[in-house]
């Protein structure tokens, strides 16, 4: 099953976004099923991050629809979309730099419990065990007391994953989850994601520049070029697609 049909977790149709004269996303449609890992690839500037920003409400779409189990996401604020079960990690890690790793998770856990409005009770002890359990899961327990502002890039990516899991998402959007990590680290991180996805039947949409990671972990690959989906299918089929080859050979020099 390739995520199609009635039971799709996420179905995106005609998604479009312009920045001034530039069509960053130009009528993109695809579907994604529960428990499925799908890679969104394409050269720099293809519109991958923009696609994520539209799906989690960071940016407002010009046209199109994006339904999570039938529920329209477009038009909602990011915090509302998160409550519907969409987790997100960022291309440039976004964590709370003045807080410890554990506190980053505690804030997310407090948010899920809708307890951030509490004015007097100290937050330091709240959900400590749950936070530590999640940190253990992503292999960061040893760093729990350290400040996010001083963490390495690879560790920050793990914090991002742990934080995104707090919401018990049904859909996980991961923007270049392994960028900046060492090669061995990349596979370990993606294997971890794969295990979690299998456990909880989460749907994952991820972007990735490392083709070995893409072909090693994606069940299906979507290829984006200048805002349009130009190919879609199983990794092997996509790899053989001449249009994809043309883009990747042509764009190889432009990658930063």
């Amino acid at each position: 099953m390739s995520g199609g049909g009635e039971g799709a977790l996420l179905s995106v149709g005609g998604l479009a976004k312009r920045f001034g004269g530039l069509a960053a996303l130009d009528g993109v449609s695809f579907e994604l099923g529960a428990g499925e890992m799908v890679a969104l690839i394409g050269p720099n500037g293809a519109g991958k991050t923009t696609c994520f920003n539209l799906l989690n409400g960071q940016l407002r779409a010009d046209a199109g629809s994006a339904r999570l189990k039938g529920r329209e996401l477009l038009g909602l604020a990011p915090h509302a979309i998160w409550r519907l079960g969409v987790g997100r990690t960022f291309q440039i890690p976004a964590t709370f730099a003045s807080m410890s790793v554990r506190e980053n998770l505690q804030v997310a856990l407090l948010s899920r419990a809708r307890r951030l409005g509490a004015l007097v009770a100290p937050a330091g002890e709240a959900f400590r065990d749950q936070a530590d359990a999640l940190l253990a899961r992503v292999g960061l327990l040893a760093e729990a007391g350290r400040n996010c502002g001083v963490l390495s890039h690879g560790d920050l990516k793990r914090v991002e994953l742990a934080v995104a899991l707090v919401g018990e998402p049904e859909l996980l959007l991961m923007d270049e989850p392994t960028a900046g990590a060492a090669p061995g680290e990349r596979f370990r991180l993606m294997e971890l994601v794969e295990v979690i996805v299998a456990e909880r039947a989460i749907g994952v949409l991820f972007t990735e520049h490392d083709m070995d990671v893409v072909f090693g972990h994606a069940r299906r690959v979507l290829v984006l070029d200048r805002g349009r989906l130009i190919a879609e299918g199983a990794p092997e089929a996509v790899r053989a697609d001449p249009r994809v080859r043309a883009i990747y050979l042509g764009a190889a020099a432009g990658r930063g």
């Binding site: 604020a77 990011p78 997100r88 976004a94 709370f96 934080v163 919401g167």
Partner: peptide
């Protein structure tokens, strides 16, 4: 610290 991240966790 990060309005992006804060919004993304509800």
């Amino acid at each position: 610290d990060s309005a992006l991240r804060a919004e993304a966790i509800g």
